[in-house]
Design a protein around this nucleic acid. Structure first.
Ligand SMILES: [Mn+2]
Ligand SMILES: [Mn+2]
Ligand SMILES: [Zn+2]
Ligand SMILES: [Zn+2]
Lengths: 133, 133
DNA sequence: TAGTAAATTTGTAATCATTACAATTTTATA
DNA sequence: TATAAAATTGTAATGATTACAAATTTACTA
């Protein structure tokens, strides 16, 4: 994955900030909040503004290379994976992990006559690590 | 459904405000925001405070007679139905409708060794009414 | 290469939902 | 009725997000 190329292919000029932010999303795969991205990158990019993080993520979402995950209010999280998948969140340590999902398994006969553009499946509980402590 | 009794059975003293707020949730079934509940009831309960709406909904959630629905950030919605079900939201008119779901249909072999306490399934798209306009 | 326009980044102020908290009012109890 | 406990209220504080204008960087042209 060449990130500057990937951004350019998706109609995004690969500025330094954009490259670093997407690089973080793509390599960490940790569903970070804006604040975590900012706090992580700010020491390495001293001029970085939190507004740039917001602007950049909005751009990524608009261009379709980033998705948002809203499990609980007051924290939007971002994800470099944009294909359909679900999420499990541990309510002890807060980790969010991806879940492959077969959406055909959802029996949605109730929903004829509607178009479905987005599907969010969020499971919340305790992860193995937190259960065995 | 006798709402004062239902509140009392769930260890909630049935004050006038609590009765009116639960009555609204239960009869409208419209997954309202705090603001909608407040704006609807305030004309009929002139002394009502928005803080009371927040406090009351928090109490209902703690006591297990109300659930929250967070599909998009910056709007928590409330639901008098606490049994497992999913939601469809129309991104044109904003209506949120319940979807019966068989959660066994989700193939979650990836998730052994975790406990699942809560499941959220949110579908977003266009409802029939908005498609045919 | 210098000059200019466009795009991007930045910092600050504004907004909006929610929470904190103390004062007031209502309810329960002696 | 007097007193304590519970519930409600209004205001201030918080925190995430957005608006916006200034500053900086980049792209393009003469
Ligand atoms: Mn993910
Ligand atoms: Mn519902
Ligand atoms: Zn955990
Ligand atoms: Zn609609």
């Amino acid at each position: 994955m060449n990130i500057p190329n990937y951004l350019a292919e998706n109609d995004i000029k690969p500025s330094y900030q954009r490259i670093r932010i997407f690089e973080y999303l793509y390599h960490e795969m940790n569903h970070p909040t804006v604040d975590l991205i900012y706090k992580t990158l700010a020491p390495e990019i001293p001029t970085l503004s939190k507004t740039t993080v917001y602007n950049t993520l909005k751009l990524f979402v608009d261009k379709g290379i980033t998705s948002t995950v809203t499990i609980e209010n007051n924290e939007v999280r971002y994800d470099a994976i944009v294909t359909h998948h679900g999420h499990f969140k541990c309510n002890v340590c807060g980790i969010i992990v991806d879940i492959p999902l077969n959406f055909n398994q959802l029996n949605l006969n109730e929903l004829k006559d509607v178009t479905i553009e987005q599907t969010q499946v969020h499971l919340i509980g305790k992860c193995n690590k937190c259960l065995t402590i």
